[in-house]
């Protein structure tokens, strides 16, 4: 056997600080943070990126990303991002939002930001529940899913149907890149990583609104261990929320 050397194949991205996160063990917010940080590292845009944290479990994201950050009022991150991007077009602006933030109190902001084709990137964490406040029903909660505010399971006749945000936003002309991925296993995490990279490239090329929806877990409020949570996500959320590219304009394909 010839001479071998040891090569570093994976290390903590530079776009994360060395802070310990407050997330529960197994929470996929940590995975999403890492994927965003890896994309910023890979594109070499850490020094000119500004993130916007939501209200929700990821409210403290500004402690964890080693980039400039602002904190928006609940659901208003796309409005804040709009102002920031228009005032500083040379900056890369992304929002990081949960489903309670983006699909409930902030539905108006996200729809209009996408409709206007704002040149921002949205990382949308869909864990089908309000995590931070104790596991209440979200617009994305599945039919029959038990939460603290739907203890018998979500009843469609009372609470209506879950919102499919990627499909909804993909109908808007301003949206350039809207995709949904899942974090339930290594293969899918790798695909999500690529999509996040593409979303930032869309912004760098000035093509308009980009969003990556990431199907995620909430072990604590789903009352499952981390491994069971990933299985539940795969078996219940993935069939209801189809993965894939919901809107990709032609210019993105040429990137």
């Amino acid at each position: 056997m010839g001479k071998v050397v040891e090569k570093l194949v994976y290390e903590r991205p530079k776009s994360l600080t060395d802070a310990h996160t407050h997330y529960c063990p197994g929470c996929t917010h940590g995975v999403s943070h890492r994927l965003v940080a890896e994309a910023l590292d890979e594109l070499g845009i850490r020094e000119r990126t500004i993130g916007i944290a939501p209200v929700g479990c990821s409210v403290l994201a500004y402690y964890y990303f080693n980039v400039d950050f602002a904190e928006a009022a609940h659901g208003r991150a796309p409005a804040m991002a709009t102002g920031m991007k228009r005032a500083n077009p040379d900056r890369v602006i992304f929002t990081y939002q949960g489903d309670g933030d983006l699909a409930a109190i902030g539905t108006g902001e996200i729809v209009h930001a996408a409709g206007r084709g704002e040149n921002i990137t949205v990382i949308f964490i869909n864990n089908a529940i309000y995590g931070m406040t104790g596991g209440q029903m979200a617009p994305t909660t599945l039919e029959g899913q038990k939460t603290t505010s739907s203890p018998m399971g979500r009843d469609i006749s009372i609470a209506g149907h879950p919102l499919k945000m990627s499909e909804l936003l993909s109908t808007l002309d301003g949206a350039a890149y809207v995709v949904r991925h899942s974090l339930h296993d290594v293969k899918h995490i790798r695909r999500a990583r690529k999509a996040i990279l593409t979303a930032f490239k869309v912004q760098l090329a000035g093509l308009g609104f980009s969003m990556v929806e990431l199907l995620s877990t909430c072990c604590t409020n789903w009352k499952m261990d981390p491994v069971e949570s990933l299985d539940w996500l795969r078996d219940n959320m993935v069939p209801f929320y189809p993965l894939g590219e919901h809107k990709v304009i032609d210019a993105v394909k040429d990137l």
Binding site: L8, Y23, G26, G30, H33, R34, D185
Partner: peptide, 12 residues
């Protein structure tokens, strides 16, 4: 790749 707390460094 699956670690939510980014605690693993890998060499090959």
């Amino acid at each position: 790749v699956i670690c939510p707390d980014v605690c693993i460094t890998v060499y090959r």
